[in-house]
Design a protein around this nucleic acid. Structure first.
Lengths: 230, 230
DNA sequence: TCCGTACTGTGCTCGCGATCACCTACGGTG
DNA sequence: CACCGTAGGTGATCGCGAGCACAGTACGGA
C-alpha cells in the first residue's frame, strides 16, 4: 500500500485544499490519504451508502447525480480537479445524498472522516478550504433550485454550458459531454437539448465539432441564462 | 441592550443548538446573542447582502426565497423554531445566497460571525449542531433539485405539503400557508396548485378549512410524492 | 467489407401546466 | 350601508417540451 506512487512528494501537488501547508503537516496528509484510481464508467459511491470519506480529485472528471426509481438521472454537477467530492459526509458522517460516477479515468486521494478530523485538529487551517468548498456547494445548489423554477429549457442549457465552461475568460471553451449527459444536467430530454444547442449554434454562440461543443460567445450564453453579464 | 427580556435565563430555552451546554458557556452565548424581533412581512435579509450573522429562530416563521428579475419568487424553505437561518454565512462570510421574510411575527437571536467563532473556540461542541444543520440543508437542497426534475406539479405539491407537515406522526397536521406561497414553494402557478389541492381533497388525503389545509393522510401524500413510505 | 453500437439531427403528436379572464366569499374600512 | 382588498375556485386557450420514430454519421471489431 506504500510507495505505490513513483514520487510520494508529488501526491499533493496541484491540490488546492492542501496548498500552503508546512512540510511536516503536508507529510502527515500524504500518509493519511489513500490514493485511488477509477476507470471511466466506474461508480465512486452510491446514494445512501454510508458516507465515510472525502475524495480529492487529482485527474479526470466525475459526475454527481441522483437517480429516480425509473432509472432516470438528474446530474447535479461535474467535478474536475482541483475540486473535491463528498465533503458533506465530513459534516455529519451521514449517508451519501447522491451518487458519483467517473466520466473519465480518474486519479484521486481518499481521506477518511476520522483521518480528516485528526488532520484538522493538527492544522485548523485545512478547515478553511473545506468551509469555502461547502459554501460554494450550497450556493450552487440554491441557484440551481431557482433556475429550475425561473428558466425555460434553453435557458437551463445555456446556464449548464456556462457552468461547465468554468471561470475562464478564454474566447473558446470546449465542452466534452454528450447531449444525453447535458440533458441530464439541464433537466430536459436529449432531443430538446439538441434543439437548444442548434439554435445557439445558428446564432453563432457556439460551434459543434463532431461530438464536442466549442463555446465561442460565453457572454451571450450568460445573457440567455439570465445572468447579469460579466 | 441588556436586561431587555424579563428573564434572560429563558433566552435560550427551547433552542436546540445551545441545549446541553454548561451554565457558564450558556451565559456567554446569551451575552453574545442579540435579541431581535420581526413583524410579519418584514425582510430579515436580502440576497447579496453581506452575510454577517446566524439567526436562531425562537418564535414565528420565516420564508427563505430567491427572486427572479421579474419579481417572481422561488421559496426554498419555511423555517420554524428551533431551526436557524443563515448558517451559510458562518462558513465563508460571503454574501447571502437567498432572501428571508417573516411570514409571522418572529422572535429570534442573532449571533455575529465573529461572536460565533469565539464561542466555538470556547466550546467546540457548538460546532456539531451547526454541522448537522448544514448537512441537513445540503441534503434538502439536493433533494429539491432532483424533485424539480423528476416530479410533476402535483407530485411537488404533495412533497411540499409533506415537508411542511414535518416529522410528526400525528394523524392531522395543519398547514398555515396560502395557495400563492405554496405555489412559490412547489414551483408552479397558483391555479395549478389549487387543482392539485382539490384533487388531493377529493381523494380524502386532506381537507380545506377556509384558508388553511388539514392533512389527514400523510402517507398517501408521501406516496404521491414518490417517497418510499415511512 | 460488413455489422453492431453510440451519438447526433429532425419531424410529429400530445399532454401538462402557464396564462388569461372571470366569479365567489369574506373581512375590514370609509 | 357601499366599497375595497385579498384569497379561493374554475373554465378556456395556448405553447413548451416530452415522447416516439427514424434517418444520418462516426467508429471499432470480426
Amino acid at each position: 500500500m506504500e510507495g505505490r506512487l513513483p514520487d510520494p512528494g508529488d501526491a499533493l501537488t496541484g491540490v488546492e485544499m492542501f496548498s500552503g501547508l508546512e512540510p511536516d503537516v503536508r507529510q502527515r496528509v500524504i500518509q493519511a490519504a489513500v490514493p485511488r484510481t477509477y476507470r471511466k464508467g466506474q461508480l465512486l459511491f452510491v446514494e445512501n451508502d454510508p458516507g465515510e470519506s472525502l475524495i480529492v480529485l487529482k485527474r479526470g472528471a466525475v459526475m454527481v447525480f441522483r437517480t429516480a426509481p425509473t432509472g432516470e438521472r438528474a446530474v447535479l454537477s461535474v467535478v474536475r480537479p482541483p475540486d473535491t467530492l463528498g465533503e458533506v459526509s465530513l459534516l455529519d458522517g451521514a449517508a451519501r445524498s447522491a451518487s458519483a460516477e467517473a466520466i473519465e479515468d480518474c486519479q484521486a486521494l481518499a481521506l477518511s472522516r476520522h483521518a480528516f478530523i485528526e488532520l484538522v485538529h493538527a492544522n485548523p487551517r485545512i478547515l478553511d478550504a473545506v468551509m469555502r468548498s461547502l459554501g460554494a456547494l450550497i450556493r450552487r445548489l440554491t441557484e440551481q433550485n431557482a433556475d429550475h423554477v425561473f428558466l425555460d429549457l434553453p435557458g437551463r442549457v445555456a446556464k449548464t454550458l456556462v457552468r461547465l465552461a468554468g471561470e475562464t475568460n478564454a474566447p473558446m471553451v470546449t465542452i466534452e459531454l454528450n447531449q444525453s449527459q447535458l440533458a441530464e444536467m439541464a433537466g430536459g430530454s436529449r432531443q430538446s437539448v439538441n434543439q437548444a444547442i442548434g439554435s445557439f449554434a445558428s446564432r453563432g454562440w457556439l460551434r459543434t465539432e463532431g461530438r464536442r461543443i466549442v463555446v465561442t460567445d460565453l457572454s451571450a450564453l450568460r445573457r440567455r441564462a439570465g445572468m447579469t453579464d460579466r
